[in-house]
Design a protein around this nucleic acid. Structure first.
Length: 416
RNA sequence: GGAGGGCUGACCGAGUGGCCGAAGGUGCUCGCCUGCUAAGCGAGUAGGGGGUUAUUAGCCUCCUCGAGGGUUCAAAUCCCUCGCCCUCCGCCA
């Protein structure tokens, strides 16, 4: 949720929002509805104050004087009940509109859309394409079965098998232990959440069509453990000493991938279900820039340890999600395609999600909203895609990255 | 599955229709006192929204006693729905 007061008072704030793609007229509509709301709210509160005072008086006054007073108070009540529906309607209008307004982009974020991200640095050598792309290699090695996945569940589902499973679990173990060593609290969160949780995490209403729902139970499958992790301190006022609070969530993630028909259809690059280790941090507002860089550094160290060449992109305003004020994408070289493809990202939500969640920190000068940040530690399935290509030798042997060997139990896999 | 009890401020805990945003205690903050040991005395100590003044303060006001709804001039207190916790019985492992 954006800060309505700042939207009203600070032209700069509004401009930073408009650097993103915003439905035209939305902000003006919101501002005028909010204006109307505050006017009516003042009126209603004044009336309620009078009614409260009248009611209190009844209790203090001798019994015989009560009936007349009660009658007077009744009239005030009637006036009040006449006005409240209007106020309620306005409030929900304001809320519905405000939920659609994205978090303003940081000044450091470049203008433009998808193609306007700023490449901050390029790390590592980009190799030639291997004999087989990940999909072909995966099928050949008996690691990926998309055909049977489709039988069971439809397109964009796959079975993962044999050594690939050990690689998957090894990746999770390795990344998790690395994060725990860095002070992250490991968490396996619920993957089914309430609508409210989706909304407060910043995903609803804007990304609703990307989310699987279970209408029967009014629950939704999370697309990332970021969602339940953000809810971890819902409605809490945290002592300053508890911050930063860093969590490493492991969960399966579910995405409808609506609007991606025909894109990335080979193998398991883009699927409806995958496992992921996610970093999530709650920090004091003044620390969120540092934390953002810290998360980015962790992601880079993971890619480096896996031997994957990558580049860091500062995502442009129009390409930022609804909730992010700034986002770095780490794009890894995909040899078969001869280009960098997104593997992980790190986002700073500032107080956008915290405002919806009501997560605050107690400071010397009162309470303030925390900032929340998240970043991918390891999107397991997609990481395998890159490993299958980068670890594939000319003769078809697969070489396991050094750091994973202790976790997967083997150093290489002979060709099949 | 059956029966019962509970959910109050940072924490413990009182409170069954008005004088309760809420006794008392603990903790914390400030001041005083005391040559000693987890001592004594006093004061203060929720969050959020709106307005106003105009700003690192104050003032007015509304909302919040698990959540949501209802009854009433008036609800922590009565009624309904939901969530969570606990105890006992049963059942399954």
């Amino acid at each position: 949720m954006i800060d309505l007061r700042r939207l009203r008072d600070e032209p700069e704030y509004r401009k930073a929002i408009e650097r993103k793609r915003v439905v035209s007229g939305l902000i003006d509509e919101l501002l005028s509805a909010d204006d109307e709301r505050r006017g009516l709210e003042a009126q209603v509160e004044q009336l309620r104050a009078r009614q409260n005072a009248a009611s209190k008086e009844i209790g203090r006054v001798p019994k015989e004087e009560r009936p007349a007073k009660i009658a007077a108070a009744s009239e005030l009540k009637d006036e009040l009940t006449a006005l409240t529906p209007d106020l309620e309607r306005l409030e929900s209008t304001v809320r519905a509109l405000a939920l659609q307004v994205p978090n303003p982009a940081d000044p450091t974020v470049p203008d433009g859309g998808e193609d306007d991200g700023e490449v901050l640095r390029v790390v590592g050598e980009t190799p030639q394409a291997p004999p087989h792309d990940h999909a072909e290699y995966g099928e050949r090695m008996g690691w990926i079965d998309t055909a049977r996945g489709a039988e069971a569940s439809g397109s964009r589902f796959a079975y993962l098998a044999r050594e690939a499973v050990m690689l998957e679990l090894g990746l999770v173990q390795w990344v998790m232990s690395k994060l725990v060593a860095d002070g992250f609290v490991p968490v396996v969160p619920p993957v089914l959440v309430r609508e409210r949780t989706m909304e407060e995490a910043g995903f609803f209403p804007t990304d609703r069509n990307q989310v699987y729902s279970l209408p029967e139970d009014e629950l939704f499958l999370v697309g990332t453990s970021e969602v339940p992790l953000s809810a971890l301190h819902r409605g809490e006022i945290l002592p300053a000493a508890d911050l930063p609070a860093r969590y490493a969530g492991f969960s399966t993630c579910f995405r409808r991938e609506a609007g991606t028909y025909g894109k990335d259809t080979r193998g398991i690059f883009r699927v409806h279900q995958f496992d992921k280790v996610e970093m999530f941090a709650f920090v004091p507002p003044e620390d969120s820039d540092d934390e953002h860089l810290r998360i980015l550094a962790m992601e880079e160290s993971i890619l480096t340890a896996l031997g994957l060449p990558y580049r860091v992109v500062n995502i442009a305003a129009g390409d930022l999600g609804n909730a992010a004020a700034a986002k770095f994408d780490l794009e890894v070289w995909l040899p078969s395609e001869g280009r960098y493809r997104e593997l992980t990202s790190a986002s700073n939500y500032r107080d956008y999600s915290a405002r919806r969640l009501g997560t605050r920190v107690r400071t010397d000068h009162g309470t303030e909203l925390v900032h929340t940040l998240n970043g991918t530690a390891c999107a397991v399935g997609r990481t395998l895609v890159f490993l299958f290509e980068h670890g594939q030798q000319p003769d078809g042997t697969f070489v396991v990255p050094e750091v994973l060997r202790a976790f997967v139990g083997f150093a290489e896999v002979p060709p099949r």
